[in-house]
Design a binder for these strands. Structure first.
Lengths: 163, 163
DNA sequence: CACTGTTATATACAATGTTATTGATTTCTG
DNA sequence: CAGAAATCAATAACATTGTATATAACAGTG
């Protein structure tokens, strides 16, 4: 059965990128489910942003993640509920709510940085190892690569693992 | 403001692809809004599939689009409501519902193929024209290109246009 | 210091996708 | 041929994410 999105080339590039992205995220989620971490894959970019940039108000967090502000508000509420984030009113502007990692959040990020993220990064890098040529060919290679061996089959055990 | 998804490289490749895909789709939607076509950008892949492959049952349509069957059922209901699709029981298997373009659907697709899709394809091809090198660099180039000139600024007027 | 406009965030709603389930048919098997 | 198993599509229930809008706080102006 012909894959129409693939056949249509540049015309459906958006649909195709989205579809590949979703599959990668789903794969990464499955991979996280194996390691016993307590939050969804989709929440890690937010945690990583706070780790990299320090405490930020909601709007700047949205900007640094490239997503819309309501999405950040939702994720922050969720992660604060889980005790991973702290939210404080800014002193000089009562509208701003400054988001920062809590102690638990800090610990989770440190563990993830040491044990989890490198594995995912390795798996994805493995998937993309031999890419070359035009973009559409590279995307085809990614799709075929994912079909042949999903991310969790590309896990390399780093030394000093927690497992 | 640092773009965290971009900085994280392969670790967030899924998020990044999804984000770029969504932006491309949103751009394409804006571009369609200018031309006066009556359906959402997201419905065109389904119409294109029927155009390329001819009448298909729901399941095979889902497979050719790479999405789940309930999504196709929903889109088909919508487009049939608009009079663009016909749905007929298969003769040899009463479970199958064969989806095909109606007269109006056929006409819409023909217009789109002549006047709309080439423009979008050109705009996206223009965006991707000078890509080379590793995937992440190409993605960066796409993001930068979209920021510099969104798709609707890349419209090339084909000859024989309807406008 | 009211008044207007702007900014930061929250909320409501729509679009779109997924998985699980159900109902109806068909196909297989003894 | 009867009953079990498989298949197709619809529906339900849920999740995610975006746009539009409402609300609250701030900032500038007469």
């Amino acid at each position: 059965m012909e894959d129409v999105i693939r056949s249509l080339g540049f015309l459906c590039l958006g649909s195709r990128l989205k579809r590949i992205g979703e599959q990668l995220q789903a794969d990464a989620q499955r991979l996280l489910d194996r390691l016993d971490v307590p939050v969804q894959a989709s929440q890690y970019p937010l945690l990583a942003a706070l780790d990299r940039l320090g405490p930020l108000p909601v709007g700047e967090l949205a900007q640094s993640l490239g997503i819309a502000q309501p999405g950040v508000t939702r994720s922050v509420s969720l992660l604060a509920e889980l005790g991973l984030l702290e939210v404080n009113q800014s002193n000089d502007d009562q509208r701003r709510r400054i988001v920062s990692l809590s102690g638990d959040g800090r610990r989770l990020v440190d563990v993830a940085k040491r044990d989890v993220w490198p594995r995912i990064e390795n798996a994805v890098a493995d998937l993309c190892a031999d890419l070359s040529g035009p973009l559409l060919d590279q995307l085809t290679a990614i799709e075929d690569g994912l079909a042949a061996a999903p991310l969790d089959r590309r896990l390399k055990e780093p030394e000093g693992t927690v497992q």
